[in-house]
Design a protein around this nucleic acid. Structure first.
Lengths: 195, 195
DNA sequence: ATTCCACTAAACACACTGTTCAGTGGTATA
DNA sequence: TATACCACTGAACAGTGTGTTTAGTGGAAT
């Protein structure tokens, strides 16, 4: 049975990731050394290199995981359905779930999007949203009808605005509920529609 | 006469800044060493430290200069005047000037906002815009009338959307003219107004 | 019993850091 | 013309972090 070893590996990796996140709350990414991480996680520095290529690899994998989780929730979102529901006064559960996921991983989002750090999670997140936005919108031909602004500018505008909303929420220590955030999001979708 | 020495200093600083920007087009900020900069600028590594504390200081000063230049143009912007002009079918020259400034310094904006880099110019730029937006909007009491979204979310939304527009422009290698960009900007202002 | 595996501890060469210090050559000043 | 000034050079310095390697430990699987 190899499951025991798998679990050992998983536990050390989790310890490393968790402690790394804690360190990033105080220190700049560049000023966090592998030794710092090892000490915080109570492991040998060499052990770190048995699990990750370097600290960039660690960061990259953590960001990747975060985005993968987000993707699952985002796939369920259907903007046209969202709008028809909103017109009836309902708030789509799928939209709420997206914000709930962000709430659940607020620590990571705050750290990765924070000004202390780092190499470009914002850009990565934006690209991620742009792709989803365009993909969904392209399926709905009516959406771009009457748009007086090029599509790429429209999507960059829309996703940046959405991201701005999320960033403000994170900066506000998430005092609003996911439902309240979802309602704001719907309002924004309506504006864009009137473009 | 000390002007000769001032000019010497200015020239080396400019050489350093110019070569640093070139290096950042290819390499990550963290992977650019002081030695790399010195070699590219054809100076001794020690000379670098006669002008800057370290490479963070260099980056910081360059960002600061860029924002200072932007501020001059942004101060002239009067959103209410912009809107009344736009209603008459005119595009405010001041708005065009802002985009012209960005066009003029496209290299720096592209590098500092690029995903290769770095520590948070995006955040800095956004904060800069938020402050200007709020300052201008607060003077115009009518602007927030009927807003169904909290002011901080509104400003974060608006400035992120504007920044998204600029980022898209930079990603598109600035194929649009500053005037075209200013017109898009005016359209966005109109949307927000209808919030 | 022995092979396997995650992990440790220590050492390695290397790169980059920021500082120092004696020296060079052009520029301004008296 | 002498000399004081100034930006800059070249070389050395200790310090810190890097990624890799090596021999060894102890528990789990076969």
């Amino acid at each position: 049975m190899t499951a025991v070893y798998d679990e050992m590996n998983a536990k050390t990796r989790e310890k490393i990731q968790q402690q790394f996140l804690q360190l990033l709350k105080d220190k700049n990414f560049m000023k966090v050394s592998v030794q710092d991480i090892a000490t915080a996680a109570n492991i040998n520095r060499g052990t770190f290199y048995l699990h990750y290529l370097d600290k960039y690899d660690l960061l990259d994998q953590m960001e990747e995981n975060l985005l993968a989780g987000l993707e699952m929730h985002l796939e369920l979102l259907q903007p046209d359905f969202l709008l028809s529901e909103a017109a009836k006064g309902h708030t789509s559960n799928h939209a709420v779930e997206v914000f709930r996921y962000i709430q659940l991983n607020a620590d990571a989002f705050q750290v990765f999007l924070g000004s202390n750090n780092h190499v470009g999670f914002h850009k990565r997140l934006k690209l991620f949203f742009v792709e989803h936005f365009l993909e969904k919108m392209m399926k709905n031909e009516n959406f771009f009808k009457g748009a007086t602004v090029p599509h790429d500018y429209l999507s960059s505008f829309a996703t940046s605005a959405f991201l701005g909303l999320v960033e403000q929420w994170l900066d506000n220590e998430l005092v609003e509920t996911p439902t309240e955030m979802a309602e704001m999001y719907i309002q924004i979708i309506f504006f864009i529609r009137n473009l």
